[in-house]
Each structure stands twice: as structure tokens, then as C-alpha cells.
Nucleic acid binder design. Structure first.
Lengths: 340, 340
DNA sequence: TTGTAGGCGTTATCAA
DNA sequence: TTGATAACGCCTACAA
């Protein structure tokens, strides 16, 4: 009969080293007990010889934790705009997770209809120690409930109005303010805004920043120049845009620059000759276009990194200084908003 | 003294239901033993009452498998072109994984210098049941070794010349053939190719398809019209492109359409007036440009789905019909290659 | 049809 | 400093 077990266990290491499993364990984990250098060396050598690696599942069971963070990718079903961000968030997340020796689990639900069931499963099955939530399509209620259950959770790039959940977000208000001010400084008088539903904090904050800049420059707020959808949507519809254009704006702010650009072209309007365009939420392609777009650059990588740091605090049971981390966005001035 | 345990265990369920742990287990797993409907109902009710969820780590340990697939994202460090594909692969992967009730683990190495250590760890620690490998920057040697160790592994969108590893790839040869033929049919005579290093199978296959189309049309192969880098690179350099242009091509094939387009513009050449352009590896933006690009569309989502199916076969210990699955790519004819 | 008990690999506790 | 052993929570062969 050949070898009974394919992979060596801690027991094999202990036997070959002539030591107890406990001692081997202390070598593996550098504690909590100390081991003499000789013993340690012997254990390490045997481990090397056997190509031994601790069984992750057994560790998790014994330690009562997984050292794994869950990344929830919501709204991946529809290949929508937002998802193009995900990879950048994930870059930041995985960078930070690696630093802290944490694993990452990808959680999606294409099929699962029941949100509640899904999150309850994740939470109770102890699959992960905490959750990072990406994408706006996770229902507020779910986020609030996770918080209520004290399950370590961090929201990325948005917050939930009226609820103090942990989140890492961006300075939507200030960046909209700066973008608007930039246009004003360049001589634009009638600046239009294609905003987002006021159900989302970024919809609210961007509108506020826009209005603050106008007020600061003593420009009257003209509702005709602003289009806010009743319900959340991705891209502004051509109708929406056409309606706004009837108010004769000389510049346009939008978080969906690519879609707006396309529609403008279909309508025969050139950027920036006929109208200036500033993106509030840079898509990767914005800088590659014939007319590179002036956009606000969201710090996606950094968002991911900060979210991990915050989540690890929560998992350790620490109370973070603030439940919200706000990172600055940078205005990248390109060719779509020239001096008028 | 309050409740000792925060989360209920299978033992709690068994006790409350007045049954044994075994019976509860059989209910949870629908087998391998049958349970009377009444018993089952009782168990399910208690589970519901306690909000019981099986502990994933304990299951994994007992079952000696994780029901988890690892997604290796290589080359995520450099925010290179290739990574923009990853999310589409992942969409397909997560879609299929969900169907089969498998979890997904994200594996990256930003810091880890030692490839071998990394993969050895993954393999031996039994963190995942198998691996999906994305991105060209995973060394061939690593892939070959995983195969040699019989660790279930599937390569996505590429194969390794000279080694029969499991992979789901695309019809690079045929699509390059079609793209070239399309240009020939539209009247182009001097078709240039900005290829990829012959170290990669897609570099080799695309060149072959290109030559086959030329031969088919009785057009002599002109090395002056072809630029293949010695070593792998992402975007063709402006020098490379300039050199090729000296051979006076009237059309250009490339797998880096966005970069080439940019350089052409910088050189003052217009598409398609001065030169036609066909992309061999559609980037998301290709269709959004002023001149929507004719490109070959890789079936990224489907690649992900097929990779999961293949990997699950390997994990089950089945021998797949073929070690390679080749999916067709579709030529999307747009405006950058008009009739000449 | 159901209960019992041993095992999975690691870690913590208690002795030595 | 090290060893023995009992959890950890679940699964399943074997008994009943």
C-alpha cells in the first residue's frame, strides 16, 4: 500500500521532526509560544522536505475566522457603465489585502433573486470576515441591516443618506463645485447639469456643488439648465439631453460623459465648438478621444485601499475615528472646456 | 449566564429538533441518506427558527474540498490594456460559478515576488479546488508545473505552445484571416500588421491568419508591412508604427487599436481617409469613437463561462474531450474600413 | 429510518 | 521549553 495521504498534515511534520503537533504549530505561526532556534530549524526543514502547507480550512475552523474579505459586485449583470470602475477599486482592494495577508472572495448574484437570503448566507456561513460593497444597486436596506447586525461592512464610493454606515467615498460636492467654477472661469455663462437621481448621495452632493459655484459667482440658478431623473438611471436619454439643450447651455456637466458625447454628436453638435463638456466621473476613455475630455478624476485605487483599511479596523473590533472617509477628486483639465 | 454561543451549530439544531446531528446533516445536504418528510420538515423549521447556517470552514474541512474556484489576476499591477478585459471574463466566470454553486476567490500578487511560492501556497493550502488563469503575464513555467502536479487549472484566452495545458481560447487565426479578407474585399492592397510577440500563441496565430488571407488572394507577403516585436509589449511604439508607415500601407491591422489610433493622429494621419484601421481585439471604446472602429469582437463572457465548465470537469476528475476549447470571434464591421 | 462515533487539520489549555 | 489532548463544526461509515 502506497502513501495513504496525498498531502502531508501537521501530524506528519511532527512525527518526522520527533516533536508534538503543538510545537510545529507554534513554529508555523511564530507563537503564541516561543520555540528554541534549534527546534524551529528542525521543524522548518521537515516542512520544507515534505512541502507541507497548513490546510486553510482547518485553520479557519480552529481560529474561528477566515482572514478573508468579501467583495460584493452588484449590478454586474447589466454590463453597465459603473462596472468599468470595479476593476480599479479591486486593484486597490487587492493591493491592500495582500499587504495585510488577507484573502479576497468575490460575491455576486446574477441568479439569486433574494437579496436578503444572499447576505444572510454570507454573514452566517462565516465565509468571510467582512464585506466590501461595490456598486449602487445594493439596496440601502441590506446595507443598513448588515450594520445593524454588526457585521463588518464598508461601502465604497457612496453613502446612505440618513444612516451612519461605514463608507469610503469621494468629495462629490467639492469636485462638482470645482468643475463648475472652472467653466465659469473660462467664460461660460449658461452651464447645464445632467445630474443623477437624488436618491443617491452623489446626485445630491453634485447638485449642491454646482449650485454653490453658481451662487459664488452670482449666477442665478436656472432650473431649465438642470435635468435630474426621478428614478436612478445610467445614461441620460437623448430626450433628456435634447430637452436640456433647448435651454441653450454653452457648457454641460455630466457624470456620463461618453453617453452624452455620443448623443451630442448624433444631434450634430460639436465639442467644444458648439458646447463645452466636462465629465464628473472620468471614464477610462475620456482622455483618448479626439477631443480629450475635461473630467473629474475619482481616486478609485485609493478608495479600494482605504476601504480595506477601514474594514480591517472593524473586523478587529476597533471603533474608527469616523464612519466616513472622504477622498478628494481631481479636476483634469483637457480640451473639451477651452477658454471661451 | 447568557447564551454561550453567538451562532447556532448543527448540534443546537439537532437538540432542538430532538434528532441526531447526522439526520440534520442529511437534511441540509439532501443526502446521501434519505430522511422522512416529517423529519425533514421539523429540521428545516428549527433551522429557520435559529437562523442556522452551516459553518463554511467546517464543511470544507470535513468534505476535503472548498467548492471554491480561484481567479488569478496577473499583471494587475500595471494598469495595462489587458486588464480591461478581466471584468468581462469575470462576469462570465461568476455567472457560471453561481449556477454551479461555487465560490470565487480572487488571487493576485502585487507584492509577492516569488511566483513559485505563490502558486505552491495556493495549491497546497487547499484554499481553492482549482484555478482560472487570466492574463498573459503568468509565466509559462508556472502553468506547466500546475498541470504536471495535476492541479485543476484552466488558462483563459491563450494557450502555451508546446504544452498541452487546459485552456479556453479564441479563434485568433480565423479572425485575423477574416479581418484581412474583409480589407482585401474592400479594395485594400497593402495591408500592414502590427503584431504581437511570437512568444504568445495569439501572436503566432494572428500572423498565420493574416498570411493565409493574403495567400488566398494571391497577394505577396511583404515583410516590410509587418511589425512583430522581439519581446512581449503592450502598445506598439510610435517608432514601430512610423517604420511600418514608411512601407506605405493603405490599411492596418492591430490588436492595440486605441494606441495605434492615437499615434496615427499624432502623426497627422486620418482614419479612414488616409489609412484604414481594423482592430483584432476590440476594446470597449472602439465603438464609441468619432470613427467607430471595425474590430474583431472577442467573446469574453463566454470564455469565462466555458472556462468554469471545463475547470469543474477537471475538479470532478473527468477527462475532458479536448484540452482546448476554441471559441469563435466575430468581425464587427464599422466605419474605419470603408470600401476603397 | 435514525443514532453513534471517529475523523478532517489546527489551535488552545493544561500538564509536565 | 515541550507534550498531550480537547475543542472547533461538520460529514459520513457503521450500528442499531
Amino acid at each position: 500500500m502506497a502513501t495513504k495521504r496525498v498531502t502531508p498534515t501537521i501530524r506528519d511534520v511532527a512525527q518526522l521532526a520527533g516533536l508534538s503537533e503543538a510545537t510545529v504549530s507554534y513554529v508555523i505561526n511564530n507563537g503564541p509560544r516561543s520555540v528554541t532556534p534549534e527546534t524551529r530549524a528542525k521543524v522548518l526543514r521537515v516542512m520544507e522536505d515534505l512541502d507541507y502547507h497548513p490546510n486553510a480550512s482547518a485553520r479557519r475552523l480552529a481560529r474561528q475566522r477566515t482572514d478573508t474579505l468579501g467583495i460584493v459586485l452588484a449590478g454586474l449583470t447589466d454590463s453597465n457603465f459603473a462596472s468599468s470602475y470595479f476593476l480599479e477599486y479591486i486593484r486597490g482592494i487587492s493591493y491592500a489585502a495582500e499587504r495585510h495577508e488577507r484573502n479576497l472572495m468575490l460575491l455576486t448574484h446574477h441568479h439569486q433573486a433574494q437579496d436578503v437570503t444572499f447576505y444572510s448566507n454570507v454573514r452566517r456561513s462565516r465565509l468571510v470576515d467582512g464585506l466590501l460593497l461595490l456598486g449602487s444597486s445594493i439596496p440601502d436596506q441590506v446595507v443598513v441591516e448588515l450594520k445593524a447586525r454588526d457585521f463588518p461592512t464598508v461601502l465604497i464610493a457612496r453613502r446612505i443618506p440618513g444612516h451612519e454606515v461605514y463608507c469610503v467615498t469621494q468629495n462629490y460636492e467639492e469636485s462638482a463645485y470645482q468643475a463648475t467654477q472652472h467653466l465659469i472661469a473660462r467664460g461660460y455663462k449658461r452651464i447645464g447639469l445632467l445630474g443623477q437621481s437624488q436618491q443617491f448621495n452623489y446626485g445630491v452632493e453634485r447638485l449642491a456643488g454646482y449650485r454653490r459655484a453658481l451662487a459664488h459667482a452670482n449666477i442665478a440658478y436656472d432650473p431649465e439648465l438642470v435635468r435630474i431623473p426621478e428614478t436612478p438611471r445610467d445614461d441620460p436619454t437623448p430626450q433628456e439631453i435634447a430637452t436640456l439643450l433647448r435651454a441653450a447651455p454653452d457648457a454641460l456637466l455630466t457624470d456620463r460623459e461618453m453617453a452624452v458625447l455620443r448623443t451630442l454628436r448624433e444631434l450634430g453638435m460639436r465639442v467644444p465648438e458648439d458646447i463645452a463638456l466636462v465629465g464628473l466621473d472620468e471614464s477610462e476613455s475620456a482622455s483618448l478621444l479626439d477631443v480629450p475630455l475635461t473630467t473629474v478624476r475619482p481616486p478609485k485605487f485609493e478608495l479600494g485601499v482605504n476601504a480595506v483599511e477601514l474594514l480591517l479596523q472593524l473586523i478587529r473590533g476597533e471603533e474608527p475615528e469616523s464612519s466616513v472617509i472622504v477622498l478628494p477628486m481631481e479636476l483634469m483639465i483637457r480640451s473639451s472646456s477651452p477658454q471661451k
